[in-house]
Simulated scan of single mutants.
Amino acid sequence: MRILLWHVHGSWTTSFVQGRHDYLLPVTPDRGPDGLGRARTWDWPTSVREVPSEELASEPVDLVVLQRPHELELAARWLGRRPGEDVPAVYVEHNTPMGDVPDTRHPLADQRAIPIAHVTGFNDLMWDAGEARTVVIDHGIVDPGLRYTGELDHAAVVVNDPVRRGRSVGADLVPVLADAVPVDLFGMRVDQMPQQAGLTTYEDLPQEQMHSELARRRVYAHLSRWTSLGLSLLEAMHLGMPVVAMAATEAPRAVVPGTGELVTSPAALVEAVRRLVDDPERATETGRAARQHVLERYGLKRFLDDWDAVLEEAAR
């Protein structure tokens, strides 16, 4: 199958394009948000091909994977075919709803032509999709391998654009944690965070390098209050890292007993991270359990098999 999709979420796309299909990614001269093309910091297979936006109309596309509402109009204009009418389509909902939760209406609510694929059960529960067809496809991760050493008694945090996204990603909790233990913050635009003692930022590392660096830290802290399940959390668990996460959205289904700790207050966050930082043996044991759990629940094969079933049904 020849699938058109936009490069929106690099980590999710990295897993999705490991499948058996051909993947077409629009590219624009400025490589802006609607035409990023191939990733620069992830390793993608040769089955992922960049296509200039002005050439898409001549491409034989079998199905469109949509991830943002305005891509409906983009696909219709660039392909000359309307998703859900002239070409099959699936809409991937990556995000938790904003606004009048739990009454937030999904942009594709009530239509029946395009199924909505939620990346977590929590998202499916909280979005009001009306009569639209929905399905949940849990995340799957390309296994980076067991790399954990925990040699640095630091907490690792990964978040993109923390200053702009603020409380939803727990940006305000970073300085609270850094007052108690050394914190190493990874991601895009993390250098915009106010500097303080105990906080070190690592800006936009290639994924392979970031995984190796994360694994040197004693514990992974997942600070998000209101986002979908962060793939960086699952990647850290795959690395064999023990985790401490805010008990919000989908995190309680990912961090099960024995794999880390779930907390609901800043004080509990600091205490849980300190316990693991101060006990390397416990941290190692917890991280091994975390890796075993995510290999079973968030493995790549299950993810791709689930997606193939949805794609095949949509293409009929």
Score class of each variant (00 low, 15 high):
Leu4Ser: 03
Val8Lys: 12
Thr13Asn: 08
Phe16Gln: 00
Leu36Phe: 15
Trp42Met: 08
Trp42Phe: 14
Glu50Cys: 01
Glu54Ala: 14
Leu56Val: 00
Ala57Gly: 14
Ser58Thr: 15
Glu59Ile: 04
Glu59Asn: 08
Pro60Gly: 03
Pro60Lys: 07
Val61Phe: 00
Leu63Ser: 05
Val64Asp: 04
Arg68Leu: 15
Pro69His: 10
Leu72His: 06
Leu74Thr: 08
Ala76Lys: 10
Arg77His: 15
Arg77Asp: 13
Trp78Asp: 11
Pro83His: 02
Glu85Trp: 13
Pro88Val: 02
His94Cys: 09
Thr96Ala: 14
Asp100Lys: 14
Pro107Asp: 07
Pro107Glu: 09
Leu125Trp: 13
Glu131Ala: 15
Thr134Leu: 07
Ile137Thr: 08
Asp138Phe: 07
Gly140Cys: 03
Ile141Trp: 02
Pro144Lys: 03
Tyr148Asn: 03
Val158Pro: 02
Asn160Leu: 10
Val163Gly: 07
Val163Thr: 11
Arg167Asn: 10
Asp172Lys: 07
Val174Asp: 02
Asp179Pro: 05
Val181His: 03
Gly187Lys: 00
Arg189Lys: 15
Gln195Met: 13
Thr200Cys: 09
Glu203Ile: 04
Glu203Ala: 03
Pro206Ser: 06
Pro206Tyr: 04
Met210Glu: 12
His211Asn: 13
Glu213Met: 15
Ala215Asn: 04
Val219Asn: 01
Leu223Phe: 02
Thr227Tyr: 03
Ser228Leu: 04
Leu234Phe: 04
His238Thr: 08
Ala247Phe: 09
Glu250Tyr: 09
Gly258Leu: 08
Thr259Pro: 06
Glu261Thr: 13
Val263Ala: 00
Ala267Ser: 14
Leu269Ser: 07
Val270Cys: 01
Asp278Cys: 07
Asp279Val: 07
Thr286Gln: 08
Gly287Thr: 03
Gln292Ile: 08
Glu296Gly: 11
Lys301Leu: 11
Asp306Met: 08
Trp307Ala: 00
Trp307Asp: 01
Trp307Asn: 00
Glu313His: 13
Ala314Asn: 02
Arg316Val: 12
